[in-house]
């Protein structure tokens, strides 16, 4: 076919093809906590002393760290979703949750005696963390991938990986309400490992489903 003919056809279809519904990324971001909460309640539920724990700083910090990760990753994802959007500057925003978590670890290392560090980091909840965060995050990741597939990510693998990161952030906010281990040493070790599973899954899904 001649390029001019194609242009004529596309111009003719301009009005007709523009009608289909596109799930905006911000709407997916609003839905994500709903899906995360549903998965969380079905699988785990909050720990018994949830309300009482809200007054302890180490417990609250888990929500701050996970929430900051979700927000930073979603901000980066919005830039990766469309062509020619500057995303590198947004990638630097991921340093914020990393810095907050690092600061929490520093404080913990100062406050907690050295011979208790190992016991704080390696608890019986490690396996639950590694399974629960990907399990709660998987449907959230699926939602993000669906939303991304209607956009035009020019780096499908990276966009999928960041979608996994955002899903892990959302999932970790809920998992934190269940997990009895509040030490930043535990959080800094197992949460990122669980997150990596979703990032890897997202990157693979991105390469498979986000090409256009």
């Amino acid at each position: 076919m001649q390029t001019d003919d194609l242009i004529a056809q596309l111009a003719e279809r301009n009005a007709r093809d523009g009608e289909s519904f596109v799930l905006p990324l911000w709407l997916a971001a609003l839905f994500a906590p709903v899906i995360g909460f549903a998965g969380f309640m079905a699988l785990l539920g909050p720990r018994p002393d949830f309300l009482a724990s809200l007054s302890t700083l180490r417990f609250d910090m888990k929500f701050v760290e996970a929430g900051l990760l979700a927000i930073a990753a979603l901000g980066l994802l919005a830039a990766l979703a469309r062509p020619a959007r500057p995303w590198r500057s947004r990638a630097r925003m991921l340093l914020v949750p990393a810095a907050v978590l690092s600061a929490a670890v520093m404080v913990e290392l100062v406050v907690v005696p050295a011979d208790l560090w190992g016991a704080q980091a390696f608890t019986a909840n490690a396996w639950t963390c590694l399974v629960a965060i990907p399990a709660i995050g998987a449907p959230v990741l699926a939602l993000f991938v669906v939303a991304l597939s209607q956009q035009a990510p020019t780096r499908p693998g990276l966009a999928g990986g960041v979608a996994g990161l955002a899903a892990a952030g959302v999932s970790a906010v809920f998992y934190a309400a269940h997990c009895p281990s509040d030490s930043p040493l535990f959080v800094a070790l197992w949460y990122p490992l669980a997150t990596l599973i979703l990032v890897a899954g997202g990157a693979v899904a991105g390469r498979m489903f986000l090409r256009w």
Binding site: I7, A84, W212
Partner: peptide, 27 residues
Amino acid sequence: QEVLLAVHTKRHTWRVGEPVTPWLLAI
């Protein structure tokens, strides 16, 4: 022609107010 088709199907990812040339070249 492939680029023009992609431009057509993904034209909702361009937003009014943004420069269209970088968007086009990225595609």
